[in-house]
């Protein structure tokens, strides 16, 4: 348990979290490794976990008929995977595939949700951190949507 606290403290998502909240959180945490090509989450399934990525890389995939799995984004060290655990109906919208050996801290979703409900301060702390991740992720997605390298170019071009 001592080790896990140290690991958790090092993760950017939990930077600056109070000791009290860390204690609340640690009861829901387990250390999980994923081998290359294994799946962390599956599109449509119950979102019963939330991952803090320690090392490696996870690709978010969605299945498109006729095109197979399309990779939308990757998340890596210091980032988090998934927010469907917090938002009803708690189902994954994407699949998550480890593209290389990946180490994570898995947080049990139900455990975490219950603690958020009973401890509003803790809940708000989690929500703030997650909202910030979502905001950055949304911003990045907007940029990706622009397909900015599609026709435009830069430097000095014709």
């Amino acid at each position: 348990m001592e080790d896990l606290t140290i690991i958790l403290r090092q993760h950017p998502f939990l930077r600056g979290l109070s000791d009290e909240h860390m204690q609340t959180l640690i009861g829901c945490a387990t250390n999980v490794r994923f081998a290359e090509n294994s799946r962390l989450i599956n599109e449509g399934e119950l979102a019963n976990k939330f991952f803090l990525i320690r090392s490696g890389r996870v690709a978010l995939e969605t299945e498109v008929s006729g095109r197979g799995g399309i990779r939308i984004q990757t998340v890596g060290p210091g980032e988090v995977l998934g927010w469907s655990w917090l938002i009803s109906p708690y189902r994954w919208h994407f699949s998550g595939v480890a593209v290389m050996d990946t180490r994570t801290i898995a947080l049990d979703a139900e455990c975490l949700r219950n603690k958020c409900e009973t401890d509003a301060h803790f809940g708000y702390e989690m929500l703030k951190r997650l909202a910030s991740v979502m905001e950055r992720r949304l911003e990045a997605t907007r940029l990706q949507l622009l397909d900015m390298y599609g026709i435009t170019s830069s430097g000095v071009m014709p």
């Binding site: 890389r57 690709a59 978010l60 995939e61 197979g68 799995g69 399309i70 990779r71 939308i72 984004q73 990757t74 890596g76 060290p77 210091g78 980032e79 595939v97 593209v99 290389m100 990045a140 940029l143 990706q144 397909d147 390298y149």
Partner: peptide
């Protein structure tokens, strides 16, 4: 290196270039 769209053969980063700064 990152790309906006990858396929299952691409093991690298997927996402906008700014996201690389966090690594």
């Amino acid at each position: 290196v990152t790309v906006d769209r990858g396929d299952s053969s691409w093991k690298g980063h997927i996402g906008v270039v700014t996201s690389l700064l966090s690594y």
